[in-house]
Write a protein that binds this DNA or RNA. Structure first.
Lengths: 131, 131
DNA sequence: TATACTGTGTATAAAGATATACACAGTAAG
DNA sequence: CTTACTGTGTATATCTTTATACACAGTATA
């Protein structure tokens, strides 16, 4: 099975992290269906031209997050992520990220109005791109 | 001169970073007036119970960011940060933080409406606290 | 100009993050 | 029960981040 992961060799972002975020996104978006048997760590490592250990780390991390379920000798599968759980998962991720940003705004004494304005601009840009 | 910096020994946040963000905040907010001669790196290190080198790093970082100006043999001073520059500075910091958050939202397929809703909630919480 | 302050340059220690190899253990199917 | 796949545990190499010491250089003033 082929998983579409793009590695940016030049990026400062660690290899395992690039793989992890992209794979996570594929699972959360439902692009890879629940129950799917993912490539073995060796096969995937071959595709990505990285070591088996790096892929293992990704699988382990995502298993801890409840997105994968793994069984020695058999393989690694995409877990069942219920609609509710998935919504919750997304919400928590977004909340954390936004809290962080708002904390930054507070730390530089940015007013509520200005914050709102900047937010609207960025959302418009980013969500516009995607359309 | 006494600068109110709170060090959290248990935090995973590096020492130099805790000092840097707090000092930066004091400068940007105008709590420490422009032109103020800051404590020498040795005196400050004594107050904070850290090494002189760590304080030096903070002063250097903030100097690169244009918030401090330093002169060997004399000391380190708070630079003149014009209203315009300060506004610009705050804006860039907040923009970066928000872009990051919105990227996260996109990566988990969070819709625009949901994002807005979460944002409003967090802003209300955080800005409410301060009132 | 001696002295008692300033900051600086260079070197290095300690810890954590990143990525790896290799021998080991479970599973399934002929 | 052998074979050819799965994942696992342990050890280690490399790099970056964080934090430090110490000898050095500039400044001001008595």
């Amino acid at each position: 099975m082929w998983i579409p992961i793009q590695i940016n060799e030049n990026s400062a972002e660690p290899l395992y992290h690039q793989i992890e975020t992209q794979l996570k996104s594929l699972i959360i978006s439902g692009t890879i269906a629940e129950g799917t048997l993912l490539p073995s760590i060796r096969e995937f490592a071959g595709d990505l031209k990285c070591s088996v250990i790096t892929v293992r780390r990704v699988y382990q991390d995502l298993e801890v997050q409840g997105l994968l379920r793994t069984k020695q000798g058999t393989g690694t599968f995409v877990s069942h992520v219920g609609e509710g759980a998935m919504e919750e998962y997304k919400r928590v991720a977004v909340e954390k990220a936004l809290e962080n940003a708002v904390d930054t705004a507070l730390s530089v004494q940015c007013g509520e109005e200005e914050l709102n304005e900047i937010f609207r601009k960025i959302v418009k840009d980013k969500y516009g791109e995607a359309k």
